[in-house]
Write a protein that binds this DNA or RNA. Structure first.
Length: 502
DNA sequence: CGGATTTGACCAGCGC
DNA sequence: GCGCTGGTCAAATCCG
């Protein structure tokens, strides 16, 4: 039945190709290096991109208003030519003084923000360094006691409350728990870890989607943390973005290897694997949201085993950071709680990431795999000020209901409101602002990301031909990075699950 | 003709 | 044990 439907859709698509082929499929290209400076990112760029520019704009507005006032005053005086030139001159001097003062203030504010940014950058660097060290330490431990280490990590990956309790204990007791848990880890080994096929299991030693990419592959030479971190858990990073495009372009090359109808979603789920290297284990799934078909959900899994182009590395770093946050579990949670309770502006590394532009990051361990969702679809909270433009929301998954994580308090069973952290990152602010202002979400996100990417002008890309099929709705994606594939996929057919054709 | 996509089949885990 | 579901494989097909 479904087959028939799909076939029909396909045929419809074929018919459409003649008349509606012009229909644009806007590929959400987060990383197109449209700008000459794409990929470049220095402090100045950061300043321009992450909201300081907007602050500056704010000053400009203010100044302009005053200037206007001054000028108006001047005009007014011109109309009354009877008044003395001396008086006029005095007023203009006063206005000029005011403007000067404000400019000075703006400059000071600018410097202050720069200092703040530098502090944050340096803080991030320190945290990152610690993270790497912890990672190395962990790796060392693993090499010394591989079995226990794996069992511990497997246990950590387990979704059962029991294993999460142990995980919490591990957070408290550190290595001791690792050793002691090793013996009893079997019963709680994550099903997802233990049961997968060898191929899938092979990816377990590296994790984080795209992320890993960050680590070893980032052609830019920037070391990404998540690549080596949390070596044994299989985390996923899901990105939700509103887009009419069949898929978001993330700078990598993908080949579609399967498609399935997932339960509870009329839209098919497409499976892609990275083709930038023959042995690259990275996979991703693309599916439209059942509730809102304009939302595209892309889930990354695995770590690239090859260098990535700068654009892809950027995404990789984002997912890497997100996954790192997810996989670092209790540690981050504690920090989150601490920050939330003490109003400490000490966001997890994720927020410092150039792609920390998601308006919401949701951690979920209730899924088969620990998954973090970067939600680019949710509007920011109604705040006009800086910090709360974006949030990290740590949801308490069902699986954690009895988890004594400190971030949830010691209460155990009772739900508490999610821990919401207002990141100071003005990068986030810039992105969020762009997203909310611009009705064209795709363009807005692209623009914001572009600005974050140091002046690069990302923009929505238009595949050669429009249209997509049942599968195709999400299909084109695989080929989105390949011109031919993209064209073919786009040409496939109708859009049962995509946004309604216009 | 080569490479990418499509799609039915197959496999494994999980719940009942 | 059986059925459902998610994920992957691989032959067939398509397209430049």
């Amino acid at each position: 039945m479904e087959m028939m439907v799909q076939k029909q859709r396909h045929e419809e698509g074929e018919e459409e190709r003649g008349g509606l082929c012009a229909r644009e499929i806007k590929e959400l290209d987060f990383f197109s290096a449209a700008g000459a400076g794409a990929g470049r990112r220095d402090d100045d760029d950061v300043l321009r991109a992450d909201g300081i520019s907007s602050s500056h704009a704010g000053f400009m507005v203010s100044t302009a208003l005053d200037l206007l006032t001054a000028v108006n005053d001047g005009d007014h005086h011109e109309e009354k030519k009877g008044q003395s030139n001396i008086h006029q001159s005095k007023q203009m001097d006063a206005a000029a003084t005011t403007v000067e003062g404000e400019l000075r203030q703006a400059g000071e504010e600018n410097r202050r923000l720069r200092r703040r940014l530098e502090e944050l950058t340096s803080s991030y660097g320190a945290l990152y360094h610690q993270l790497v060290q912890a990672q190395q330490l962990h790796t060392k431990h693993q090499q010394q006691a591989p079995i226990a280490g794996v069992q511990l990590l497997d246990a950590l990956a387990a979704a059962s409350p029991a294993s999460h309790r142990r995980r919490a204990a591990a957070a408290v007791d550190g290595d001791r728990t690792a050793d002691s848990d090793g013996g009893e880890g079997d019963e709680n080994v994550s099903p997802s870890l233990g049961s997968k096929r060898p191929a899938a299991a092979a990816t377990l030693t590296r994790l984080t989607p795209e992320s890993g990419s960050g680590g070893e592959n980032n052609g830019g030479g920037e070391q990404a943390p998540a690549a080596e971190m949390a070596p044994c858990r299989k985390a996923r990073v899901s990105v939700r973005a509103r887009s009419e495009a069949p898929m978001i372009s993330d700078g990598c090359q993908w080949r579609k290897y399967g498609q399935k109808m997932a339960k509870g979603n009329p839209c098919p789920r497409a499976y892609y694997r990275c083709t930038m290297a023959s042995q690259c284990p990275v996979r991703k799934q693309v599916q439209r949201c059942a509730e809102d078909k304009s939302i595209l959900i892309t889930t990354y899994e695995g770590t690239h085993s090859h260098p990535l182009p700068p654009a892809a590395a950027a995404m990789a770093k984002t997912t890497s950071a997100a996954a790192a946050m997810l996989l670092s579990g209790p540690a981050v949670s504690r920090d989150a709680l601490f920050a939330a309770h003490h109003h400490v502006v000490a966001p997890p590394p994720f927020f410092h990431h150039p792609y920390a532009g998601s308006t919401m990051a949701t951690l979920s361990a209730s899924a088969p795999f620990p998954t973090i969702t970067l939600d680019l679809t949710q509007p920011p909270p109604t705040t006009t000020t800086t910090a709360a433009a974006a949030m990290l929301q740590l949801h308490r998954p069902h699986a954690f209901s009895s988890l004594p994580f400190s971030m949830y308090g010691a209460g155990g069973g009772s739900h508490r409101p999610p821990v919401v952290l207002p990141p100071p990152s003005s990068v986030v602010e810039t992105m969020t602002a762009a997203i909310t202002r611009d009705p064209n979400f795709t363009t807005a996100v692209a623009a914001a990301l572009s600005s974050i990417m140091a002046g690069g002008g990302a923009q929505a890309r238009t595949p050669p031909r429009g249209g997509s099929d049942a599968a195709g709705d999400i299909n084109g994606g695989g080929g989105a990075d390949h011109a031919t594939a993209g064209a073919r996929a786009a040409a496939a057919a109708t859009q049962p699950c995509g946004t309604s054709p216009t």
